[in-house]
């Protein structure tokens, strides 16, 4: 048993001549929320897809519980306990809470000579799973189209937890949500952590990530800028690193230059 459930050592991923990821080191611990921060094009998507088994790493080592592993497919990653909740959530709006919860993994019972979908048990499990996430389901047979975005996000998370996820990868879970709903989702993330799961939270919103995260890894242009424990850093430091302190200074200088030119043309 390794200290880390998942460990990346110098993982790189190339697409032809494009270097999408270069020498990424990362350690994921059970019972921790690991926040992956980075601007657009930083390589966040490639990294989660590598973690989720969509892409294979071109170079480097991938340790699952200390054992070198390569995921052959998303299904393989899922079977090994790595569940990814993508932004589109993989939910069907026209279907009920229960049917969505068990979609593709329906529980059945014997009914005479037939195997039938065990609706009662499924309803109970789905309601219970969501209740543990603090979501009260009125009618588990109601279509999820009427649920809010936050509730749907929680449904997708609850589903992943129920089906035995040890590492939960969440792709921008608060991107399309309002303040209150985001808070709900963050609470659910904290609950998942308290149940002993490792959570990898991908976001570019530090304000959402900071309250729940235990560690931060910053990505920039395919490279890791490093990993910090929450106790070692502040929100402002992270924010500055994320925006790229140098670039912000350059921007300020440029704006000052514009102002100067404007004034010159005004006086002329």
């Amino acid at each position: 048993m390794s200290e880390y459930i998942l460990e990346l050592k110098k993982v790189s991923r190339y697409f032809g001549s494009v270097i999408a990821l270069k020498d990424i080191d990362m350690q994921i611990k059970l019972g921790e929320v690991h926040c992956l921060l980075g601007d657009n094009g930083a390589g966040k998507s490639t990294l989660i897809k590598t973690l989720a088994g969509v892409h294979l790493a071109s170079e480097g080592e991938f340790l699952l519980n200390g054992v070198p592993t390569a995921f052959s497919s998303p299904k393989d990653a899922l079977d090994k306990g790595i569940a990814t909740v993508y932004q589109d959530l993989a939910l069907v709006n026209l279907m009920s809470v229960t049917r969505n919860f068990f979609m593709g993994r329906e529980i059945t019972k014997q009914w005479g000579p037939f195997k039938v979908f065990d609706t009662e048990k499924a309803n109970a499990i789905a309601s219970e799973g969501l209740a543990q996430m603090g979501i009260d389901v009125r009618d588990p047979e109601h279509p999820i189209g009427t649920m809010s975005g936050g509730e749907r996000q929680c449904l997708a998370i609850a589903r992943a937890i129920h089906f035995g996820a040890k590492v939960l990868i969440l792709d921008e879970p608060t991107a399309a949500l309002g303040v209150k709903q985001s808070a709900n989702v963050l609470k659910v993330i904290a609950k998942a952590r308290s149940r002993g799961l490792a959570v990898i939270l991908i976001t570019h919103n530090v304000h959402h990530a900071y309250p729940v995260a235990d560690r931060f890894t910053l990505l920039n242009r395919g490279k890791s800028l490093g990993t910090w424990k929450k106790s070692e850093t502040t929100r402002e430091e992270i924010l500055e690193m994320m925006a790229g302190g140098q670039e912000l200074e350059n921007l300020e200088a440029e704006l000052a230059e514009f102002n100067r030119v404007d004034q010159q043309t005004a006086t002329a």
Binding site: P74, Y86, D88, A90, V92, N93, M103, G104
Partner: peptide, 11 residues
Amino acid sequence: GDAKAAKNVGV
């Protein structure tokens, strides 16, 4: 309902 979502969860 949503073939892509269904595929993603193994249907």
